[in-house]
């Protein structure tokens, strides 16, 4: 089986691995590198649980081949807290009961993170749009939307 090298930064630290050609980034992250925060809910692009940020853009790691990510800057939810301090989005998800079983949560947080990176004060519609590729079967979405809006407010207060 042909092994190919992959090298990228994951949450700021250098990673290098050999994977089978054709391996998805989701598999490479979870099974090779050991970052299990992206989840595999469908492997079809439909649930968003595997969402990661690649070079600042939201991507589905289940549909991305690892070897196309050489040199990329990859961010996942496991790297969001800094020195043990939760990111405002994580805090808001906790406080707003935006997580039940938690399986969708890392993907939701990634989708919300890209939104807030580009849009400091999103409208409710913008939040809904940003999360529209992510499925949650437990919470009913409303607490998730509220959490993102709350985090945006917390962010802009900090910035002010």
């Amino acid at each position: 089986m042909a092994k190919v090298p992959v090298q990228f930064t994951l949450n700021g630290s250098e990673k290098a691995e050999f994977v089978d050609s054709g391996t998805t980034l989701l598999h490479a992250l979870r099974d090779k590198i050991g970052d299990t925060s992206p989840k595999g809910g469908c492997h079809q692009g439909t649930c968003g649980a595997c969402s990661v940020i690649i070079d600042g853009e939201l991507r589905l790691s289940c549909l991305t081949l690892a070897e196309t990510c050489n040199g990329a800057d990859i961010r996942t939810t496991s790297g969001l807290a800094e020195a043990g301090v939760l990111h405002p989005l994580q805090r808001a998800f906790l406080d707003a009961f935006a997580t039940q079983c938690g399986f969708c949560t890392p993907g939701m947080i990634m989708a919300a993170k890209v939104l807030l990176d580009h849009t400091a004060n999103p409208s409710r519609e913008e939040v809904v749009e940003a999360l529209s590729g992510n499925i949650c079967r437990c919470t009913g979405y409303e607490p998730i939307i509220q959490a993102v809006l709350t985090a945006a407010r917390a962010n802009s207060q900090n910035a002010a």
Binding site: T36, S37, S78, L86, G102, F103, T105
Partner: peptide, 19 residues
């Protein structure tokens, strides 16, 4: 919830997280 800190940090272990 007791388990939500694990959920929001991606640290909660689901069965498939064992390899």
């Amino acid at each position: 919830r007791l388990d939500s800190p694990g959920h929001v940090t991606g640290k909660t272990a689901y069965f498939a997280d064992r390899n």
